[in-house]
Amino acid sequence: MTLLHVVLQVVVVVALLHIIGLYTFVPVRDVRSLLSDAQTNARDVAPTALLFGIVLLANGFIRDAGVELSWLIGVNITGRIHALEGQFVATLQSYATPELTALFSFAYIFGYVFILTFPVVLYVFHDTKPLLTTLVAYSLNYAIGLGSYVLFVAYGPRNYMPELVESLLYTSWPQAQLLTSQVNVNTNVFPSLHASLAVTVALIAYRFRGRYGQWHSVAIVLATLIAVSTMYLGIHWLTDVIGGVVLAVLSVSIATRIVDGNRNRTAIRPRIRRRLRQL
């Protein structure tokens, strides 16, 4: 069991989930028109996608440098978070059962990858607006989250009160750590990007509900599971999750404003020009 095995496992499971999802939420249409729609949509959002790609790349590069910088200028708030919320996570974990652990581990790894990738695929077959909103909101999440990781150094509950909180994910599935340590650093817990990105998807799904069957219900349930899983597994504090939800609301509202603004501006501009000319 190496890293490669874990990655393969995730890819296969998430691909399966995608197929099921597409089959469920995309109305049956002519495949050719679907594909041509996807092509035009993809072309329309290409600049935004590029932006998101740059943010992701920067995230990869900066993450390591950010950790160094964080130790230099960041504030270590682990103790303060603990003083704020006490043993909430430990209480949550006291309800642990093997079944719940399996469910939440699944949500944390597979559910998370699915909820991040599926909307992009779903929306590309339909409409550019939710797609644009999603990409802009993702970029904002990463950018703000990363800044926050530099400013705040904090360890999760499993690292701070090991006698009360078990690293349930890693004790039940140790290989998962080979994967998570590739994309996470254990001092980057505030805010929870797991929670913020999942809630972002749910908020956007809810905003555009009606067009994609029950996708918004699935997204809301899955996002809730993911947010709870981060605490249940001892990785995040309640404070991180609340911070994540706030970040999600902020990102979605800014993204909505940007995307809607762009639309209106194209309509407004000729009018303004006409006004100016009259003046």
Binding site: M1, P174, T180
Partner: peptide
Amino acid sequence: VVGSDVTAAEMVANDT
């Protein structure tokens, strides 16, 4: 390098 002692012990068990 691994993330925690549990993972390290598991790698020994898995012959990695």
